[in-house]
Design a protein around this nucleic acid. Structure first.
Length: 519
DNA sequence: CCTGCCGGGAT
DNA sequence: ATCCCGGCAGG
């Protein structure tokens, strides 16, 4: 169908068969590195001869004419190998090439070539997935605005290289040991997406009986392959409708701030701000007894509560806001979501603790420091604590935060398995604290932490400490947080007005700290 | 000023 | 325990 067009494309990077340089007749494979026209003055009539510089398997460079290469192959169609194995140099061509390879060539031909860095990367799984990732990414970017046709080969390959580096380091980073889900934030993005619009509807059965009953859309992406990171711009819109759509939901004020957090691109010199570093995922958990359903949108959880627990069938428009009482907001650190999921029990904290050997002072840099958590006052529950970091030593890596909107409804104690590899602040003295209990708002939170060496890692630990500060208030800091900081968000009084005082939460009625609209 | 909410009193 | 409110403090 498009064969004609394919021919026109550059074949750089294509795998071709060529006559063996030793002349023994056995065809060898190589990768086209360059092509030049032999007779540049060729008129439209005359066939032009091209000379291809091919990187052979043994690393040597050879030049072949088109005919030579064609002759070297005996299992391609009439038009010659170049045409069938063409890999268009940029963007979508990559996937095309891959498809073809997979179809007709020997298994080893499947592994992708990286044309410019010259050396072939061996076919280890990582490399493979890197290729896939690149491919997908290319597709994405080409479908957006990148004028792919104009990109030079070097640019393209720089992208590949950087992507490879990023992915490689991701896949080797200590945290990435369990499900591949957490590697990709893109996926977390799609949770959101699905939550608001997709198949991810709050079903009536809370069969899982447990906490995490989302259905990840992993069926469409190869589970063993990290899905491509969505570019920040494509990711952003997903969040907004999910949360913003619901009128007076408690997170309304918060998510914007998250969005503001510009992922100042730390992916080396990535040209595009590729991936929001936002590793915080907000979920909403039903607090109804024995339910514990977790959904990703307020709308979803509200509907769940309304229909399942409150037994109302009407739509959200006849809601009186009562659902708000029965769910809470949970922040998940998607970096470690899987850890948190796989082991909610504190027991395994030691098992969980990341393997990175102490000797290496700095962790793989590319492992995204999930900074981005804003110091925005409205975002943190205990700003005092965020200033003082007495707790930072026990910064958990498997970290999920209870945002506790309606804490007084909370039921079970929440235990946070913690395994920390580093901590930031110099202000504390490393002690051997292992477990303590803190009471913050109403629900008791049991926190078990492992103290590890106080190696300082800037961005990382800082962020962690901040996050943990949000989570808990250390017993000793009581003087500092004598008074809870004034809430920014709407409170019952504002929302319902004096005339509807009976709709306020009890705390508000009693002039206590509002428990419905915490912020 | 308004508003959130702590401390403490009344029941 | 529940309810209420004076008064402080942040905005």
């Amino acid at each position: 169908m498009h064969t004609r067009r394919l021919v026109k494309r550059s074949i750089l990077g294509s795998r071709v068969y060529a006559p063996s340089p030793t002349g023994d007749g056995a065809p060898v494979t190589g990768v086209v590195q360059a092509v030049k026209q032999e007779n540049r003055d060729a008129s439209a009539a005359g066939p032009r001869r091209s000379v291809y510089t091919v990187l052979m398997q043994d690393g040597s460079l050879k030049e072949f004419t088109e005919e030579e290469i064609a002759a070297g192959s005996n299992h391609t169609a009439t038009k010659g190998p170049l045409k069938s194995s063409l890999k268009q140099s940029s963007s979508n061509g990559v996937s095309d090439g891959h498809k073809l390879d997979g179809g007709s060539r020997s298994p080893e031909a499947v592994d992708e070539q990286r044309p410019v860095d010259g050396k072939r990367v061996s076919r280890d799984p990582d490399t493979r997935s890197v290729s896939l990732l690149e491919q997908k990414r290319k597709v994405v970017s080409s479908s957006i605005d990148v004028p792919h046709a104009r990109r030079s080969e070097e640019e393209v390959d720089m992208d590949k290289v950087t992507a490879a580096m990023v992915l490689t380091s991701l896949s080797t980073s200590p945290l990435v040991r369990s499900p591949p889900v957490k590697v990709s934030e893109g996926l977390s993005g799609s949770w959101k997406d699905n939550g608001s619009a997709g198949p991810f509807t709050p079903s009536s059965n809370s069969s899982s009986g447990g906490y995490w009953s989302w259905s990840a859309p992993s069926d469409q992406s190869n589970p063993s392959t990290p899905s491509p990171p969505l570019s920040a711009d494509s990711f952003k819109p997903f969040r907004v409708p999910g949360v913003g759509g619901v009128g007076s939901n408690p997170t309304g004020a918060e998510d914007p701030s998250l969005d503001e957090q510009d992922g100042s691109s730390l992916l080396f010199d990535e040209p595009i701000p590729r991936k929001r570093k936002n590793s915080m995922k907000v979920m909403f958990k039903c607090l109804w007894k024995n339910c514990g359903k977790v959904l990703s949108t307020t709308a979803g959880i509200q509907r769940h509560i309304r229909t399942i627990h409150l037994g109302r069938n009407c739509d959200s428009d006849c809601s009186d806001g009562e659902e708000d009482f029965y769910y809470t907001e949970i922040k998940l650190n998607t970096d470690s979501v899987a850890d948190g999921l796989s082991s909610l029990s504190p027991v395994s904290s030691s098992v969980l603790s990341p393997p990175p050997p102490p000797p290496s002072p700095l962790p793989p840099l590319s492992h995204q420091p999930d900074s981005h958590r804003s110091p925005h006052p409205s975002d943190s529950k205990e700003p005092h604590a965020s200033g003082t970091t007495p707790l930072s030593r026990s910064a958990p890596s498997a970290l999920y935060l209870i945002h506790a909107d309606h804490a007084y409804q909370a039921t079970a104690p929440v235990s946070i398995p913690s395994s920390s590899s580093n901590s930031s602040s110099t202000s504390f003295t490393p002690s051997n604290s292992s477990s303590f209990s803190i009471s913050w708002q109403s629900p008791p939170v049991t926190f078990t932490g492992n103290t590890v060496s106080p190696t300082q890692t800037q961005g990382f630990g800082e962020q962690r400490s901040q996050t943990i500060a949000v989570l808990s208030s250390p017993p000793r800091a009581t003087t500092a947080l004598s008074r809870k900081v004034r809430g920014e968000g709407k409170k019952c009084r504002k929302v319902y007005g004096m005339e509807n005082r009976d709709m306020w939460c009890t705390a508000c009625r009693w002039k206590k700290a509002c428990q419905r609209f915490t912020d």
